[in-house]
Design a binder for these strands. Structure first.
Length: 471
DNA sequence: TTTTGAGTTGTTCGA
DNA sequence: GTCGAACAACTCAAA
């Protein structure tokens, strides 16, 4: 007997898992292994919440494995040591895993591959980063041409999707360590664990003639509507394959009955390609994890006021759209994409706080927190990243609220003290007269904070600072 | 090599 | 209220 190890990292699923299939095809049984790497779980981006979601999913995977004659083996410690020990003890001749494209993972894997039979099969993007390059052989730095080239590559078809194996033979008697204690409440987060859940969410989003994917173009920016796929935490931990999602998007584009439906499905596909793009950027430019992608913006005159930062984190800035979103983040571990941009812009371009501070807070709190997407998004908003768009794009949280949460439904859901504020003041509660504040049971400065900053002034201050940095 | 066209997501001002 | 221009030139990608 020479079993293979299926080393699970960010691909916690049985469906469409090429690494698992390769391990099975190698013969003589499979050891499904997850290693809790203290480097990752005590690092600067450690997140108890994301950890709990991960552990819940591992538990769920273990249940599915046990139905198939197998079980999940958990080890704690340095991956190389843990793998070596198992390889020796069980005479393992091959380790199979999905490739993780983040800098830490690539370094770790290349070290392991020096002494152990590690085979990387598939990866966290659909198209491998080095397979999409400009005609001159260098990587793209702009999304749109990248996206066009990406779409020129042949898409996967439904026939490519590998089904979950019915039986996974696993040697008996392998010691497994217990998972850390879990306190994950999916009622609170809205993200039940398990790959089955991920499949159901994708189906609910994209199956049938009236599926949300067909109105995505109009609704994607509305945090007051439940209109996005909300699949991000599932992509983050590979509970569903990106290949399956892309296949589903292409099927929807085919099935669309009119231009509007087609554009909507295409818009969702483009969002998946954004995910690919940020994986790609981090692969080619790993330094952008620690510093501005654009050199000219590495020394912006940040103010970094701790009190402002605390108010932002707590959702007590006095700007309802910002506060609603920041409280949604802390309460649930997720935030709508539109408000990610609004809150990030407010932190960086109104408060002049280093985007890395915001990036770290998001990583601490987001269930879907992923270095590539989070860093890419923050640098995009800060204007320091891979985007030649004008630096004077500064979101106005009031205008954004009026546009994308017109009735204030989103705000009222997350900022209860604004519940009885009339619609016409919901984005500008400080404009209420004292008697209006009284009847709304919302005294500004007492029940709800005053604005912590003047928008006009801070906008101009940032424009000046960025302009100076450029010249 | 040079040239040309294009660039996710915005805001404000003034006609 | 609506609409187009200005913001300020720059970088990127491809012909």
């Amino acid at each position: 007997m020479a079993p293979s190890i299926w080393w699970i990292r960010r691909d916690i699923r049985l469906t469409d898992n090429p690494a698992l299939h390769a391990a099975l095809a190698n013969g003589d049984g499979v050891i499904p292994l997850f290693i809790l790497d203290p480097k990752l779980w005590r690092g600067r981006w450690f997140s108890q919440r994301r950890g709990n979601f991960l552990f819940s999913n591992l538990k769920s995977l273990d249940t599915e494995l046990r139905k198939r004659g197998s079980q999940l083996i958990i080890r704690q410690g340095q991956p190389k040591q843990q793998l070596s020990a198992l390889v020796q003890k069980f005479e393992v001749n091959a380790i199979f895993s999905e490739e993780d494209l983040t800098p830490y993972a690539r370094e770790r894997d290349s070290q392991i591959a020096e002494t152990l039979p590690l085979n990387l099969v598939g990866n966290t993007s659909l198209h491998y980063p080095s397979s999409i390059l400009k005609n001159d052989g260098t990587p793209y730095k702009v999304y749109t041409p990248f996206m066009r080239r990406w779409k020129e590559k042949p898409p996967p078809t439904p026939f490519d999707i590998l089904s979950a194996p019915n039986h996974i033979p696993t040697p008996k008697g392998i010691a497994s360590q217990p998972l850390p204690e879990i306190s994950y409440n999916s009622d609170k987060t809205g993200f039940p664990p398990g790959e089955k859940t991920a499949q159901e969410i994708l189906a609910a989003f994209a199956d049938g003639p009236h599926a949300p994917i067909f109105s995505y173009q109009e609704s994607q920016n509305r945090p007051d509507l439940n209109s996005t796929s909300k699949l991000s935490p599932y992509f983050r931990f590979g509970l569903i394959s990106i290949r399956q999602a892309v296949t589903t998007a292409f099927s929807a584009i085919q099935a669309a009955k009119n231009d509007n439906q087609r554009n909507s499905a295409e818009t969702w596909l483009n969002e998946l390609i954004w995910r690919e793009f940020f994986n790609y950027i981090l692969y080619h430019y790993p330094n952008s994890l620690h510093q501005s992608f654009r050199k000219e913006f590495r020394d912006l005159p940040w103010i970094n006021d701790e009190e402002d930062f605390s108010a932002w984190k707590a959702g007590r800035t006095g700007f309802p759209m910002v506060d609603a979103a920041m409280r949604q983040l802390v309460d649930t571990g997720w935030m709508h994409n539109r408000t990610r941009m609004v809150t990030a812009s407010f932190l960086v371009k109104n408060l002049l706080i280093d985007w890395r501070w915001g990036e770290a807070w998001f990583m601490k709190n987001l269930i879907d927190g992923d270095p590539a997407a989070n860093n890419g998004g923050w640098q995009w908003v800060a204007g320091t990243g891979t985007d030649a768009a004008p630096y004077f794009r500064i979101f106005n949280p009031i205008t954004q609220g009026q546009k994308f949460d017109p009735s204030g439904k989103y705000i009222r859901r997350w900022v209860p003290e604004l519940h009885s504020v009339p619609d016409r003041y919901i984005h500008t509660p400080w404009k209420m007269s004292p008697s209006e504040q009284q009847s709304a049971k919302c005294l500004i400065g007492t029940d709800y904070p005053e604005q912590i900053i003047d928008l006009q002034f801070s906008r101009q201050r940032t424009l000046d600072a960025y302009q100076k940095a450029r010249s």
